[in-house]
C-alpha cells in the first residue's frame, strides 16, 4: 500500500518501454502510415489525370473521326467520278467496236456477194453456152465465137 522501492523498478520499466517504443515501434508504423497516405494521394491524382486524358482523347477521337469521314466522302466521290468515266469510256469503246464489226461484216458481205456473182457469172456462161450448143448444135464453135461469148458474159456481170 505504501510507496517503496517498487516505484524505482516501475520507473525503470516504464523508461525502457518508452525508449523501445520510441526507437523501434513508433517510427516504422508511423512511416508506413504516412507512406500509405502518400500512395493514396498519388493514386487519386493519377486517376484524376487519367480522367482528363480520357476527355482529351475523346475530343481527339472526334476530330480524327470527322477527318476520316471527310476523307472517305472525298474518296467515294472520286471513285464515283472515275466509275462514270470508265462507263463512258467503255460505252465509247463498245460503240467503236460495234461500228468496226458492222463495217467488217459489210465488207465480208460485199466480198461474198462478189464471189457469188463471179460464180454465178461462170455458171451462167457455161449454161448459156450449153443452151446455145443445144440450140445451134455443132454450128457454133467455141474458138470462132469467143468474142460473142465474152460480150454475153460481160453483160451478165
Amino acid at each position: 500500500m505504501s510507496i517503496n522501492a517498487t516505484l524505482i523498478g516501475q520507473m525503470i520499466t516504464f523508461a525502457l518501454l518508452v525508449w523501445f517504443t520510441m526507437k523501434y515501434i513508433w517510427p516504422p508504423l508511423f512511416d508506413s502510415l504516412e507512406e500509405r497516405k502518400k500512395k493514396i494521394a498519388d493514386g487519386l491524382a493519377a486517376a484524376e489525370k487519367g480522367q482528363e486524358q480520357i476527355v482529351l482523347a475523346e475530343k481527339k477521337a472526334i476530330i480524327v473521326l470527322k477527318e476520316a469521314k471527310d476523307r472517305s466522302a472525298e474518296i467515294v466521290s472520286l471513285a464515283q467520278k472515275r466509275a462514270n468515266e470508265i462507263v463512258e469510256e467503255s460505252k465509247e469503246n463498245a460503240k467503236h467496236e460495234g461500228e468496226r464489226l458492222i463495217l467488217s461484216a459489210k465488207a465480208q458481205i460485199d466480198q461474198e456477194i462478189q464471189q457469188a456473182k463471179d460464180g454465178l457469172r461462170q455458171e451462167v456462161t457455161s449454161l448459156a453456152l450449153a443452151a446455145a450448143q443445144q440450140i445451134l448444135g455443132a454450128e457454133i464453135d467455141k474458138a470462132k465465137h469467143q468474142d460473142i461469148l465474152n460480150k454475153v458474159s460481160n453483160q451478165l456481170g
Binding site: Q10, T13, L16, L17, F20, T21, Y24, I25, P28, L29, D31, S32, E35, R36, K38, K39
Partner: peptide, 21 residues
C-alpha cells in the same frame, strides 16, 4: 507490469516488423 509491458512491446514490434505501406 513487466509481463504486460512485454505483451505490448511484442505485439507492436510484430506489427512494426511487418509494416508495409
Amino acid at each position: 507490469s513487466v509481463v504486460l509491458g512485454a505483451i505490448f512491446v511484442w505485439f507492436f514490434k510484430r506489427a512494426a516488423d511487418k509494416a508495409t505501406s
